[in-house]
Nucleic acid binder design. Structure first.
Lengths: 185, 185
DNA sequence: CCTAGATACTTAACATCATAATCATCTGCT
DNA sequence: AGCAGATGATTATGATGTTAAGTATCTAGG
């Protein structure tokens, strides 16, 4: 055993830190990646990226939306949509038109081609969910969803609490739940 | 109500597709992002990125590691480490040395500065976990971890099954659980 | 030996994400 | 009206993830 190993092991014991495997962000990241590994091949084979698929799904689910609302729904940022939407327009998966009453806004709509793409891929997607349900258990899936949603709620409360308690020092609200420079991982 | 809205609503009813909010990848992504929103400010204030923090934690937990093992542990890719590690070396958070018995390999070790950084940040991190435990519930947290791990196991089984059944057509195994061009979102 | 293939890691090229800056438009106040 | 500030969206810039190609080293078979 090398000196570094020994040091690290001592360090691990001395540090008031949970095991790396008990990191919530890591667990969520790994799990999501594992799920996506099942879904990606099908999407890729149809020439759709994960982000484009989210846009199609959001539009199919909620109907035409403004860009900001679409960003919220798909969990993408404005700039990402500004790049992705023109591509999808060219491919006639979606269309856009200005809003008469406010020329800053534009409405994004699902086009027939986009709808067909969804219809084409949906069975595959559902089949994967069926496999998951079979292996993992239906109740387990619903339980997981419940926990994830509840955790999100709890986290939001904590954030609000932070915002409130730091109000004395900094005037600005913590803006909004988003990230930092660099990729998502 | 616009024609597009009507179309979309009809489409939604016609399509054999679950509600967008019941998308497992989305739920995991949103939850992870919500968690990271609590952790990021502390890391950022100490000049560490999320990825660098994962590297430090992995080294503190398991001791010195080769680059490949580190990639596995941190869920980063080799090229990312090739970019990140030199920076961390310059800042003396970690160090590297060639392995005598195999000059291709190099061992990455935690340096005192890195250890101090962990020690500095760990309390903050644990305090956030404490808040989560308080709001969300301790049993809920452990239950979530359990479900996430079990789901990963199930997904791996499904992947293996796919690999086996597609063995006739394509010789190559599905390699390994990784992603596609573009960022993580 | 010594050459072919495998392995560890790096470099390069490209796509994407995140922040900030910018542009256009709208709203409220005077 | 007319201007200041807010808001929707795009563009610009920098950092990261991913794939593929490249380099160096090791291992195995002739």
């Amino acid at each position: 055993m090398s000196a570094e190993d020994t040091d690290a092991k001592l360090a691990r014991k001395a540090l008031p830190m949970r095991a790396f495997s008990e990191s919530l962000p890591m667990a969520l990241l790994r799990t999501r990646e594992a799920v996506m590994c099942l879904f990606r091949p099908g999407l890729r084979s149809r020439g759709v990226t994960e982000q484009q698929w989210r846009i199609l799904r959001a539009l199919a689910h909620s109907g035409s939306m403004e860009v900001t609302a679409l960003a919220e729904a798909t969990f993408l940022l404005g700039p990402s949509l500004s790049r992705i939407l023109p591509d999808m327009e060219k491919r006639q998966l979606v269309s856009r038109r200005q809003v008469d009453s406010d020329l800053r806004r534009s409405m994004v709509s699902l086009e027939p081609k986009g709808l067909r793409l969804i219809a084409l891929h949906a069975p595959d997607s559902e089949q994967i969910y069926a496999q998951i349900a079979k292996r993992f258990g239906v109740e387990q899936v619903t339980q997981l969803f419940t926990l994830l949603h509840e955790l999100q709620d709890s986290l939001e409360e904590i954030s609000r609490q932070h915002a409130k308690s730091s109000q004395r020092t900094s005037r600005k609200p913590p803006a909004r739940a988003r990230a930092r420079p660099g990729g998502s991982r």
